[in-house]
Simulated assay, not measured.
Amino acid sequence: MNYIKKTDAYDIYIEPSRKTIVIRQKWKYIWSVASGLPNWSYLEKKAWHQKADNVIWLQWGSHFVFWALVHDENNSNVSLHKKEFNLEFDIQWVTTDQHWTANVKKIGASEDFGSKVNPSDKKIYLAHTDVKRRIVSNINQNTVKHEFGHTIAVNDEYGKLNGNYYDPIYVNDTKALMNVGNELRARYIRDIKIKVNKMIPGVTFATFLDK
């Protein structure tokens, strides 16, 4: 028996037979181009989506483990007790019923683009180059995998940037993905853990980061 929870930001699938928890997001794309650049072809769109999905999966998938705890020995779900579940992530390209609208823009080589996520209206703004590694000043990461973190309710952690202040608690953790680095942290799945722990009566999950 699988367990499913749908939210406005993603859907959660607990699959005991595969010992997997899947976070599935549906993205509806809006494709745009800077002046003077050719329009997106279907093959370019498909390739970009596949690359983005792969970058996110490689960064986020199979690194977090959920350990099931059943609190009543008479619980019908006792077979889940002390089982380990891998956390996986999947981005689906949809045309309706999306969680997020992803605005992806082809930009020129010298164009400065401010990639961001607006959680309040469920919109993502990305440049076509955001699936590639970016090395600018002290930033060395793929932008798309950083911005994905915002879609699962993780705040920026890099402190002061361009005059704006974000979460100051982890400002010195510069190797962290939601700062300016590439490393995951256990704190990044707090929102997911809260939701997962409400899905199966009498069952909660401890979590840890398996690097």
Rank of each mutant, 00 (worst) to 15 (best):
Y42M: 02
F66Q: 11
L58Y: 15
F66V: 10
W67N: 11
F66T: 07
H49D: 01
W60S: 06
H63T: 03
E73N: 14
L69G: 01
N74L: 08
I56Q: 05
W67H: 15
E73Q: 12
L43R: 05
D72N: 15
W48Q: 01
K46M: 02
Q50N: 14
N74F: 04
L69A: 03
W57R: 15
H71V: 06
V70H: 07
K51A: 07
A47C: 01
Y42V: 08
E73S: 13
Q50Y: 05
W57M: 12
W60L: 09
W48H: 11
S62V: 03
D72E: 12
W40A: 02
G36W: 05
L43A: 10
H71K: 09
K45E: 14
K45V: 00
N74M: 07
I56T: 13
H71P: 05
G61R: 03
G36H: 05
D53S: 15
L58C: 09
K45H: 01
E73W: 07
W48D: 02
N39P: 05
F64Q: 06
L69E: 13
N74Y: 09
E44T: 02
H63A: 10
K46T: 08
E73P: 02
A52M: 14
V70N: 12
Y42G: 00
G36V: 02
H49V: 03
E44A: 06
L43Q: 12
E44Y: 01
K51S: 11
D72Q: 05
A68V: 06
P38K: 07
W40Y: 02
Y42Q: 07
F64G: 06
W48P: 02
N74K: 11
N74I: 00
I56K: 02
G61C: 09
A68L: 02
N54S: 15
Q50K: 10
W67K: 14
L37C: 07
E73A: 10
A47V: 01
A47K: 12
V65S: 04
Q59S: 11
N54G: 05
S62H: 14
W60K: 08
I56V: 15
K45P: 00
G61S: 15
K46C: 00
L37I: 09
W57C: 09
S62K: 14
G61V: 09
K51C: 05
Q50R: 13
W40Q: 00
S62A: 13
E44K: 01
Q59W: 04
Y42I: 09
W60C: 08
H49Y: 03
Q50F: 08
W60T: 09
F64D: 07
